[in-house]
């Protein structure tokens, strides 16, 4: 039913989504924490920047990434200077693009979870002489656990559902940048509808189950 190239695309997509989600949880947590607690006038600015991928078309992100990560762009110059070569057409390049593209899907649920906790539990922890790090990991993280789960699910699912940016900077290389969405597009373009149906049907089912899981959680715990 599934050919070797289709299986390779599925495996690559799962790998990309896992790596991207892990990176986004690490990078997104401090951003969300800062956004939740700050009174800085930059809060609005950073919040808007983080939300940009929600509204920008993938063609805009893909275009700027191709230029910026390319050999003449600032990031491309840096990666070449470091001896890494350039990022477009590589798995690492897709991770960078996906992390950018899925950033709001991780930061926003985390920010809402942190805001819902409020300053009170931390103040209490501080009076008990807990260090900020200590209270973050023993108080905030357990309280915000539903927010972390929502963020991880959304970040993962959104990366699996990515298409346009990958199409623009991926170069469609088997096992490196040819993810499921691109593989489906290829099948459809070549009129290979049977192959397209198998993958597209699988994608539909996967996305529906993810959202079903997410909403049944939400039903129990409200948004966070």
């Amino acid at each position: 039913m599934l050919s070797a190239v289709d299986l390779a695309a599925i495996w690559l997509t799962l790998k990309l989504a896992t790596v991207t989600t892990a990176i986004l949880l690490i990078v997104g947590t401090p951003i969300a924490w800062w956004l939740a607690g700050t009174r800085s006038r930059f809060k609005v600015l950073i919040g808007a920047l983080v939300a940009l991928p929600l509204v920008l078309p993938p063609s805009v992100i893909g275009f700027y990434l191709l230029i910026t990560l390319g050999p003449h762009g600032p990031v491309g110059q840096l990666t070449q200077w470091l001896g890494w070569g350039i990022l477009p057409f590589t798995f690492a390049g897709l991770v960078v693009a996906s992390a950018l593209y899925s950033l709001p899907f991780v930061v926003q649920p985390l920010q809402q979870a942190f805001e819902a906790i409020g300053p009170r539990p931390l103040e209490v922890a501080a009076t008990l002489r807990a260090s900020p790090w200590d209270s973050f990991f023993t108080v905030v993280v357990p309280l915000a656990k539903p927010g972390f789960i929502t963020a991880a699910i959304l970040g993962f699912a959104h990366t699996v559902g990515e298409f346009g940016v990958v199409l623009m900077i991926g170069g469609n290389i088997p096992e490196k940048t040819r993810v499921v969405s691109v593989q489906i597009y290829d099948h459809v373009e070549a009129l290979e509808y049977a192959e397209a149906h198998t993958l597209a049907g699988g994608m539909l089912l996967f996305s529906f189950l993810v959202l079903l899981a997410l909403y049944s959680r939400k039903g129990r715990n409200a948004w966070t």
Binding site: L66, L69, G70, P71, H72, P88, F89, I169, G171
Partner: peptide
């Protein structure tokens, strides 16, 4: 063409 013109290929 665009991959080549941007120097990525």
């Amino acid at each position: 063409y665009q991959f080549i013109v941007t120097g990525n290929a």
